[in-house]
């Protein structure tokens, strides 16, 4: 399943002592980076006479992290199996529309709207999974193909935002407890649930097994196909949740809300930034949450400093590649250690 696996050149030995190395797992690095970023950002913003982490700032970071966080949790699941999903962005648009149109301003239709959106999302995930496992198509191209099909449907059916979310449901997008948006707490709950699933359940172990080595997993009795399909269904459901959340925030569904924000590539970036191996088998949602928070914090700092939007992209690109290069170095050191001790 490791479609993106790139075999890497033989190990270089590292001079750093194993004990130190072990302490600096990618998750630790991510959160250290996040703290550093918050400190440096606070200083920079402070130099302008403003405060980064006041109530508005915290609200901002958490709000920005919410939508991306939920998609990225789903993306983590598929990437851990060695797959990936490029169709989430269009799926977010589609589910936001399905939810908003079903609700059509009626409080009574909130639940049916949510359920329909999630059911369709699960269906799309099932299709992704089946194309990858049964038709044995590469995940990159399979989900790109599904993304194009969804795009065709959206372009053909909608001429812009549609549907109407009842005000009661808009509270999901706007309510907060102190500086913490309710939706951000729900996002954290999704992260916690995914963490529990991945680390404490049998299907969770299977995801790591399939991502680590599909053949070995198959030989040891793991139903590899089912694992990949399940991961894709979960990923799409997460995208569906994001679409529903965005609908509540925007007051209606919008066909391109997911693609304009680039949630496909951005969620992948957040996952690898969080230390999950793109080839699968290693990583987890805790790191992903760190990656998402780093991206959201960067965005907020950029806004406070009024950085040129084009410069933001340069920084994002450099941060992404640097982070993954760091993890790769660490991993090589790990392997070297295992080989030579």
């Amino acid at each position: 399943m490791s479609t993106l696996q790139e075999n890497i050149s033989p190990a270089r030995q590292s001079a750093v002592r194993p004990a130190v190395r072990r302490r600096f797992t990618p998750v630790v690095i991510v959160y250290l980076a996040l703290v550093t970023l918050l400190v440096v950002g606070s200083v920079l913003v402070g130099l302008r006479g403003e405060v980064l982490l006041d109530q508005a700032g915290i609200l901002n970071i958490l709000t920005r992290a919410t939508a991306l966080g939920v998609v990225a949790v789903g993306q983590t699941m598929v990437i851990l199996t060695g797959s990936l999903d490029l169709s989430v962005a269009y799926l977010i648009g589609l589910t936001s529309l399905l939810a908003a149109e079903t609700m059509a301003g009626r409080e009574s239709m909130v639940l049916p709207g949510v359920l329909l959106a999630l059911a369709v999302a699960a269906g799309v995930g099932l299709v992704n999974g089946l194309i990858i496992t049964v038709l044995r198509a590469n995940a990159f191209i399979a989900t790109l193909g599904v993304a194009l099909i969804l795009r065709g449907y959206l372009e053909n059916t909608y001429t812009g935002p549609a549907g109407d979310v009842p005000r009661g449901f808009q509270h999901l997008g706007y309510d907060r407890i102190g500086p913490v948006p309710v939706a951000a707490l729900l996002m954290l709950a999704v992260v916690a649930l995914a963490w529990w699933y991945l680390t404490r359940t049998r299907p969770g172990y299977h995801i790591y097994a399939v991502g680590g080595d599909t053949e070995v997993a198959r030989l040891s009795g793991v139903p590899t196909r089912r694992v990949v399909i399940t991961a894709h269904v979960l990923c799409s459901v997460a995208a569906g949740l994001t679409g529903i959340y965005l609908a509540s925030r925007l007051g209606s569904g919008a066909p391109y809300v997911g693609t304009d924000a680039g949630y496909d590539l951005e969620s992948i970036a957040a996952v690898v930034l969080g230390g999950t191996l793109l080839a699968g088998g290693r990583g987890g949602v805790v790191g992903t949450l760190g990656g998402v928070l780093i991206l959201a914090t960067l965005d907020t700092i950029f806004d406070d400093l009024e950085v040129d939007p084009f410069f933001k992209n340069v920084v994002r690109g450099v941060v992404l590649v640097t982070a993954v290069a760091l993890y790769a170095r660490r991993m090589m050191a790990d392997r070297a250690r295992r080989r030579f001790t």
Binding site: G160, A162, R249, G251, V257
Partner: peptide, 8 residues
Amino acid sequence: NTTATLTP
């Protein structure tokens, strides 16, 4: 950026 979605 768009009409309907920015209203709230």
